[in-house]
């Protein structure tokens, strides 16, 4: 069983990731094989079993909000693909 082309394209759109035709074709097959392997979980009875999101027992870790030194703007912006002064320059979000 392969995933449908529409399904793969839909997932890629959710992930905001383009895919070539060849990538879509490969994903239809490879994802299906992996997903098929997940079926094994159906045999496990999880009635009344709570989910585990993380393995330590800490919850809502809080600390005092003490102002400290920030990273220097120049160092942070050195990695920016595009900038204007001390700002990141992005493509228009609303046109």
């Amino acid at each position: 069983m392969k995933l449908s082309r529409e399904e793969v394209v839909h997932i890629a759109a959710l992930a905001r990731m383009s895919m070539s035709e060849a990538e879509i074709e490969k994903a239809r097959e490879q994802l299906a094989v992996i997903l098929e392997n997940f079926e094994i979980l159906k045999e496990v009875d999880t009635t009344n079993v709570p989910p585990t999101a993380q393995s330590i027992n800490l919850q809502s870790v809080m600390r005092e909000d003490i102002p400290g030194e920030s990273l220097p703007a120049e160092k942070v912006l050195a990695n920016a693909p595009d900038r204007e002064g001390d700002l990141f320059k992005l493509r228009p979000v609303l046109e």
Partner: peptide, 14 residues
């Protein structure tokens, strides 16, 4: 079916 189920089985493995 996938994520939540996996998290529950994670509990059982622990």
């Amino acid at each position: 079916a996938y994520y939540l189920k996996a998290q529950k089985v994670r509990t059982l493995i622990r």
